[in-house]
Structures are given as structure tokens and as C-alpha cells.
Design a protein around this nucleic acid. Sequence first.
DNA 1: ACCTGAACACCGTTCAAGT
DNA 2: ACCTGAACACCGTTCAAGT
Lengths: 184, 184
Amino acid sequence: MRADAQRNRARILDVARTVVEEQGTQASLRDIARRAEVGMGTLYRHFATREELLEALLGSRFDRLAARAGTLEATRPPAEALEEWLREFAAGAATYRGLAASMIATLEDDASSLHASCMAMREAGARLLARAQEAGHIRPDVDGTDLFALFSAVASIADVAPSIAARRDHLFALVMEGLVSRSR
Amino acid sequence: MRADAQRNRARILDVARTVVEEQGTQASLRDIARRAEVGMGTLYRHFATREELLEALLGSRFDRLAARAGTLEATRPPAEALEEWLREFAAGAATYRGLAASMIATLEDDASSLHASCMAMREAGARLLARAQEAGHIRPDVDGTDLFALFSAVASIADVAPSIAARRDHLFALVMEGLVSRSR
DNA sequence: ACCTGAACACCGTTCAAGT
DNA sequence: ACCTGAACACCGTTCAAGT
């Protein structure tokens, strides 16, 4: 990559981080280009879609969270590992406004650049879920998609309604309760 | 109201119903005006905000659901009344794509034309919740806002991801499980 | 009193023209 | 190779001009 291209790419990512922090994952791409002092075409050349930009911004976080599931699986009892992972997942989903919604969109759209890293992360969580189910802690009629859907749903609504954001943890706890086996 | 104004209003509402059915609550207002064969100014004269239009489209549904809570309270045992009402609430939230999200937005925005009717409906649900709590069926640490947040969250995510829409009922059931008292 | 549609300020996306 | 910025097709919202 040419040196000026490299510089532009870095500038765009830098500015994008700030703008997404301010406006959420639906931030204006035009605004990002403007503030990076770069033509629209340059932004599109480096990131052909909004999802490519988000992947560059967030992909490593998803990878880290996927790896984290492996660590927790090796070091903690099943129920505790799952709960801790979900706590970290929820915290990650709150990184940027709209992120939970972007992750949900990824479910349907396997052309999305966020698809692969999100799926890997979901699958890592699903393994912790399966382990907790084998240990009898979690209802057997729940799968990884249910888990992801419920936690993402609560995260995405909290993004949109600040008054609900205040009770995020409580809502996560209530959802968690619903997944726990009745007879232990 | 002048006769032509009355006709225009009716036309707009008619077309809006169709377009919102097609595109969801975020439907293009321009498109509605176009298809109603009416100037943009006319649409704005009759419905100053998108929420006013939605209220005209949906207000009576909310009122009906609020009234339904009273009926259920009078005719069914507490737990059953709450569950049935939530079932109907969830079905209503699925009327239009984006409706659950619009209702959630209403929480923060008390200037919204949907605010009053939504709040009345939520309060009706909250009364059923309180009754089920007094009967010991539902955890005491849940309030009407929790109830609304959780069910709306699941409804709104199902709007966005068809693959999740298929398991709506299952997700509602899981959430419901989380609200039920452990010791009965 | 009410209606129309152009005007304005924004998008996202594409692409001819430049270096 | 890469960049620029105008062009295009859309928005929502407002408002002068018409009837």
C-alpha cells in the first residue's frame, strides 16, 4: 500500500472511532470523511461498506471475547464461566451506541464484514452455554441463538432508551433467571 | 374542517396504513404524500410529526389493549390474566415492523404523540403485573418498566431479524420464566 | 382555510477527472 | 495507485405563492 494511502486509512480509522463514539454505529460516513479531511471516494476505497469500517474498528474486540470464552472454560466452573462471559459480552455491546443492533443485523446478513467475527464470538459463547447445560445449570431448551438474541435485545434497547440503560444489569439478571434450570 | 381537508386526511391515513405495512414505522413520509397524491405541506398540516401519524394509525389499538387489561383482571386469575395480556401485547407489537422500537422511543419522549396512549397501555399492564405479584406468582423485584422493556426488546429484535422472528414465542416464554417467582 | 411544490440542508453511493 | 469532489437519487422539513 502506498504511503499516502496508509496514512489516509489510519486517519479515517482514528476519526471514525471518535465519530462512532459520538453518534453510534449509524454515524454519518460523510461526516467521518469530512473530519478526516479525505474525499468520499477515499473513504469508500478503504472501506467499501459501513460494516467493513466497523469490522476494522471492532473485529479485534470480538476476537478477544471469543478467546476469553476459552480461558473461562478452562479456569471456571460451568455456570460461573457462562455468567462472567455474558457480563463481558454485555459490557462489550455497550461500547458504542447501536453496536448491539449492528451485531443483530449481522445474523441475517452473511455478506456483512462483521459476520465472521461476530459468528465466531457467538459460537464461543454457545460452547459455554452447552457446558453449563451439561452441568444441569441451564435449561436444555435454550440454544446459542436464543442466548445471543436475548442479551443483544436488552443491550440494543438500552442503547435507545437511557432510562432503561440505568437498569441494564437488572434486566440482564432477569433474563438470566429465565435460562436457569428449575430443578437443580 | 373543510370537506377537501377531510378527504385529504382520510386519504393520507389510508395510504399511510399501506405504506407502513410495507416499510414499517420508519416509512418514507415523502412516499406516503406521493402515493396519497398530496403535497408534502398537506401531510405536515394534518400530521405535524411522524408520531402524530402513527398515533392516528395505532392509538385505538393501544386504548383497546389497555381496556383489555381491565377485562382480564375481572375475569381471570392473576397469573393467567398477565400471561394472556402479554401474549396480546406481543401480538400487537408485531402489527408493523418497527412498532416496538417506536413504542420504546416513546418512553423517553413525552412530547411524542404516542406517549399518552402508550403510557396508559403500559400502566394497564403494570396493574396486571402488580396483581400477579400480590398473588406470589411473579418476583417482587420487577416493575412495569422492566416488563415493558423486556417484551418490547424481544419484539423489536424480531422485527429486525426474521431468523429470530421464528422463535419469538420461545423467547417470550424464556423471558416470562425469568419473571416467575422461584418459591410458589 | 387549505393546498402545492420548490427550496434547503442533509444523507449514501458512484464515477469522471486529476495526480 | 490513489485521491478528489461533483453528480445523482434519495430523505425530512419549511415556506412563499397560489386558490
